[in-house]
Amino acid sequence: MGLATLEVMQAMHRTWSNSKVRVNGKTRQMQWRDMFDIAVKWRRIADPDQPVLWLDQMPARSLSRGFNNHINLIRGQIINIRYLAYFDNILDFIKDRILVYHGAYNPRGLLEVRQALENVNKVEDLLPIMKQFNSKTRDGFTVNSKVPSMKDLGKEYDGFTITITGDSRDADDRGADAAVPVRDRDADAVCNLILSLVYYFCNLMPLSRGSSVVAYSVVMGALMASGKEVVGRIPKGKLVDFEAMTTPSPESFSKTAKNWMNLMSLPVWYQSLPSVAETFPSSRTMIEVLNTDSSSHCPKKS
């Protein structure tokens, strides 16, 4: 997705200079989706066996019963180790939402629930505990995350949902909505706005797959357009989308992500690179470059 990142950088640089883009022969203001469409285009070409679709552009009949990005965290004895680093965060999140629920609907029993949850150290132990306090949780229960809006302060939208049942723990995304105004040209403020956009994108999960790599490609490209280069690496076991989904606010996500990124000033020579969009204007040229053996041009790791 390196070429996707470069194309996002070049598109954003042109936009910040001109504030408009040309789409289908017409000139208009650039929208957040235009950035992500660039990364989506490359993600589709990079792995054509996995269709990457915008959910709102899918046929109505395909969405008539709803569409969720569904992830099994634990099913029976099988643990999804890809998300293992987030199990403690998810457990704390579930405990917090349970306390919020009982605080609103069972205030008299809140202290007893709180004491019971203090002894829970594994997600698997939550269901037996909850059965003691609510007969409706006999077969399982769900909790939703809340995503704060930057447009309407104080308003929250549903984020992802955790489902606890007798044989599995699942996470699926419901969606979020927010608008992020971009006015401040200060480097750190721009960085925070870019990361907040990705925070909402990851919680919204508007793609059928590939949201994480698309989001991070946009982050890197937009930051490069602002004059910053990401030289750090995502820590082992961490995932961009899950980091955003398990973080309570865009500010917290921005703080965490910037610790990973180790931002440095962008080298000047990036500005002299040829246009990615003009160099690879068709699907054929994109496929050709992705299948080119570039090992002889890349520095070997020591």
Rank of each mutant, 00 (worst) to 15 (best):
Ser64Gly: 11
Met261Glu: 00
Phe36Asn: 03
Val240His: 00
Met220Leu: 01
Gly140Cys: 07
Met9Lys: 15
Thr163Gly: 07
Ala179Met: 04
His102Tyr: 15
Val231Asp: 03
Arg28Met: 15
Asn192Ile: 06
Ile194Gly: 04
Ala116Cys: 04
Ser282Arg: 14
Ala222Gln: 03
Gly227His: 10
Gly175Asp: 10
Ala60Cys: 00
Met1Lys: 04
Ser211Gln: 09
Ser295Lys: 08
Ala116Ile: 05
Asp88Glu: 15
Ile234Ser: 01
Met264Gln: 13
His70Ile: 12
Cys298His: 12
Val100Pro: 01
Thr292Lys: 01
Ile81Phe: 04
Lys131Met: 13
Asn69Arg: 10
Arg233Asp: 12
Asp177Arg: 07
Ile98Arg: 09
Lys301Ser: 14
Ser168Cys: 05
Pro48Arg: 06
Leu53Met: 11
Ile94Glu: 07
Cys298Pro: 00
Val214Leu: 00
Gln50Pro: 03
Asp188Arg: 02
Val123Thr: 09
Met30Trp: 04
Trp32Lys: 04
Leu193Met: 13
Pro107Ile: 08
Pro48Asp: 04
Asp188Phe: 06
Ser282Trp: 13
Pro107Asp: 08
Asn24Gly: 11
Leu204Phe: 09
Ala179His: 05
Lys26Gly: 01
Ile129Phe: 01
Leu197Ile: 09
Trp54Ala: 02
Val213Glu: 05
Ala244Gln: 03
Ile234Met: 09
Phe242Asp: 06
Thr246Trp: 14
Pro206Met: 07
Ile71Arg: 10
Ala179Asn: 04
Phe253Gln: 01
Asn24Leu: 13
Arg138Thr: 12
Lys255Met: 06
Asn291Ala: 01
Asp47Asn: 12
Thr279Glu: 02
Pro248Asn: 10
Ala171Tyr: 10
Ser135Lys: 11
Arg44Lys: 15
Lys151Leu: 07
Arg61Pro: 01
Ala116Val: 08
Asp170His: 03
Ser212Leu: 00
Asp241Tyr: 08
Ala257Asn: 01
Ser282His: 13
Pro235Phe: 01
His70Ser: 07
Val23His: 06
Arg209Asp: 14
Thr292Leu: 00
